[in-house]
Design a protein around this nucleic acid. Structure first.
Lengths: 202, 202
DNA sequence: GCGATAACCGGAGGGCCACCCCAGTTATGG
DNA sequence: CCATAACTGGGGTGGCCCTCCGGTTATCGC
């Protein structure tokens, strides 16, 4: 089965089409890493050796292209979430995963914004697959943590992800982005957890 | 050549110039409230009944325009910070103020982004007056709270403001933005405070 | 009150970009 | 091997940001 996202390709997509598709994704990857998520689509097309029309045909919206670029990373994060489900400490597992999400969002410029944008346009049409994948993966972790009384029960996974994305969005394209993001996450996520013991003097 | 952003005009600025200046600021206010901080400058000029050149002459950069638009609100926030300095509970005062900052940032689309952008371009040249004003005002509140052991000592005011701005940025242009922002702030700011007593079972 | 002058105004134009249309080209199935 | 359907990319449109330049107007010294 072709690795097509949502359509079970009735036509298996012509060879050159798939070739150009891959070229565009590769070019987008490098250009976005260089210039951020607001990079010029034409520059991506140029860098891929492809006309702008081709790019727009394969990816009718910028969001669609971002989804394709970040798909592998999102899948990795979902896999990590699955692994962490067997962690002995549900609360720490959740926080660890959220930090990983934040780290990825900071490292891959624009991922954070991409994840957030997914929430809008409620329609399940397209463009929000990254968002839903992450939400589903994280929801299991949160449910387990909540069951163990390790987190504030009123926090939803959407809120938590939005918080993480916001921090990533705010610190990306800063000189010391990763450091700042880490500190901010430390501050913010600490408020999410429930510390039944009195807080250590640290 | 006096680069006056706020300078006390050696030449008192011609009457029509000031008139157009005010018109542009007023137009920007409404257009930004409608379309966000990324609104088209030409549309602002159009809405003000003014050529685009006039807009660019008065405000050489978008940031300069945003500064002018948000100046009054920022001043109000600084005044509020000053008032809260006499609040009996330093920790609560700080959190109250940060929530107020967040509320303003959400209400006035683009203010959050504007506040953050100020941090960059380290130069004290221009465009970061809003940022420095807010930072200075908040720093006093934070210092007092820290002295009272009411907050985690490693949190800096820049970090806290960045956190608040990030949340505002993430929730603005959402249908239920203010509500979400409030919940997220609740989550995030709780991690900032130091609860010397063991946390209530709540 | 009245020119001279300096400041101000806004339309025109250049460069860049997202997006669409259409004729040429190429892979694919009978 | 060829008919056909799908894919391609150059060119066009409209929008944006920003700058230059000739015309206009407020302001100051007389």
């Amino acid at each position: 089965m072709p690795k097509d996202a949502t359509a079970p390709a009735p036509r298996p997509m012509r060879a050159d089409a798939r070739r150009n598709y891959n070229r565009v994704v590769a070019a987008a990857e490098t250009v976005i890493a260089e210039h951020g998520a607001e990079a010029s689509l034409e520059e991506i097309a140029r860098h891929a050796g492809v006309g702008s029309a081709t790019l727009h045909r394969h990816f009718p919206t910028r969001q669609a292209l971002l989804e394709a670029v970040f798909k592998s990373r999102v899948e990795a994060l979902c896999a990590k979430a699955h692994d962490l489900l067997s962690d002995p400490d549900p609360g720490t597992a959740l926080v660890t995963w959220l930090r990983a999400v934040g780290a990825h969002a900071v490292a891959n410029r624009g991922l954070g914004a991409s994840l957030m944008r997914g929430a809008r346009h409620g329609g399940p049409t397209l463009g929000n697959t990254c968002h839903t994948m992450i939400v589903n993966a994280g929801d299991e972790l949160l449910a387990r943590a909540r069951q163990a009384n390790a987190v504030r029960p009123e926090a939803s996974i959407v809120q938590l992800l939005k918080l993480v994305s916001a921090i990533a969005l705010a610190t990306e394209e800063e000189p010391d982005g990763p450091t700042q993001a880490d500190q901010l996450l430390d501050l913010a996520l600490d408020g999410v957890r429930l510390h039944r013991t009195s807080r250590p003097h640290k």
